[in-house]
Write a protein that binds this DNA or RNA. Sequence first.
DNA 1: ATGCATGCTAGAGTGCGCTCTAAGTCAAGC
DNA 2: GCTTGACTTAGAGCGCACTCTAGCATGCAT
Lengths: 130, 130
Amino acid sequence: MSQLSVSEAVAETGLSAHTLRYYEKEMLLFEVPRDSGGRRFYTRELLAAIKFISALRATGMSIQGIKDYIDLYRRGEHTAQQRMGLLQSHEELVQNQLKKTRASLEMIRRKIALYQTQLDAAASATQQGH
Amino acid sequence: MSQLSVSEAVAETGLSAHTLRYYEKEMLLFEVPRDSGGRRFYTRELLAAIKFISALRATGMSIQGIKDYIDLYRRGEHTAQQRMGLLQSHEELVQNQLKKTRASLEMIRRKIALYQTQLDAAASATQQGH
DNA sequence: ATGCATGCTAGAGTGCGCTCTAAGTCAAGC
DNA sequence: GCTTGACTTAGAGCGCACTCTAGCATGCAT
């Protein structure tokens, strides 16, 4: 029950089986345990790690960036400071990206508002027979 | 002065000349005027359109999506409703994406905080000779 | 008039992150 | 014992958004 099959991991993470294998291979990192038949199973710890990786991806960190982070992880406890540094600079990056997205969104909203007044004006003109 | 050269448009938009030409070709839309020598120049209106397109791109709309929007634009005034609909559903999409990004960012921050307490504990242990 | 920056074209190339293919293995249920 | 279905592998393929190349044209500045 604390060991999930591939299909269960797919359901939990929202990633495809292909993508799970791709991450495993590209990041060369979490050694996914296998059953007697050579099939993968995912422990709770592994699942948590994958979810964290998903969060990094969802915020735009590249596969290479994540790989670098995990490589540090595997080098041991003394890399904690560096790992934190990596996360901190990524956080900053994401904040800036959010700021930019919000500004762009604001621009889009202004355009929508413009359409709205324009369409309202057209509608009331029609109603009044203009 | 209200007609910008390529290099000025590059400076204003933050896009490369390559990208400007690429957008022009892919979106098949804004007919960029040319000088006697066949070189492009950008009017203020065009610049504004390009900046709006940049906002759509910055919020993740695909080239194809933008093309669809502009195609509507060129079909005339009666497509205003549809264009607004397009923008509205894009807005919704961006909102959801923002929500997801913020959740992921929160996860990353918790991890950073974890590192911080961990490193603080290690530091004070060292200081006290443990 | 000469040199150099800027711009032009068509089309090829790149990097990223998946995503799929093909052929095979294994375990459980009928 | 046979089928079914979830899984395995190595490697090819794809879609997107640029990004660059090569070779040529134009036009301002010395």
